[in-house]
């Protein structure tokens, strides 16, 4: 299946799902002629139309046009690596309220560098730790953004 066809199918599915949600928006006595669901429904219809054209076009030209881009060798591999990268982000969100900003950012820096380079050297640990301090100075001290302090705040 080529990518245009896949994107067309995805677009059509999104349009259908969005249409269902849009159609379930309740009516209101304060509504105008167009109403809160007016434009969303129009967007869904337009997206569906465009998706169908894309699907039609990709089916029609599939045999004629050579594939412009070949999948990278070992196409399983990249997707797996991407999931790992996302997991690091998810772990950050889950841990930062408890471990606090500085520690979690250090962990994030360390994890990503390790994940992408495959090694943990003393330099990497050092860079992650000092990087976290720089981030803390920049965001919390200088800009005054109240990043979660974590359970450390309760110890003092």
């Amino acid at each position: 299946m080529n990518r245009d066809l896949a994107f067309g199918l995805l677009g059509a599915a999104l349009a259908a799902g969005y249409y269902r949600l849009a159609a379930s928006i309740p009516q209101s006595a304060l509504a105008d002629g167009v109403g809160p669901r007016g434009l969303p429904i129009a967007y869904a219809v337009v997206l569906l139309g465009l998706s169908l054209i894309l699907i039609g076009r990709s089916v029609r030209t599939r045999n004629r046009e050579p594939r412009t881009r070949n999948a990278e060798p070992g196409s399983q591999h990249p997707a797996v690596r991407v999931v790992g990268m996302l997991a690091i982000g998810a772990a950050y969100i889950a841990l930062v309220p408890w471990l606090g900003y500085v520690v979690t950012v250090a962990g994030l820096l360390l994890a990503v560098t390790w994940y992408l380079s495959g090694v943990v050297t003393r330099t990497i640990v050092l860079v992650a730790a000092s990087g976290a301090v720089v981030f803390w100075l920049l965001f919390v001290r200088l800009l005054g953004i109240p990043h979660p302090p974590g359970f450390w705040a309760r110890l003092f």
Binding site: P97, G144, P146, H147, P148, P149, F151, A153, R154
Partner: peptide, 15 residues
């Protein structure tokens, strides 16, 4: 205080 308040925000209940 800001720190404490944000600790409260995340539900830690700091004193």
């Amino acid at each position: 205080v800001l720190w404490l308040v944000s600790a409260l925000t995340v539900g830690c209940g700091a004193a």
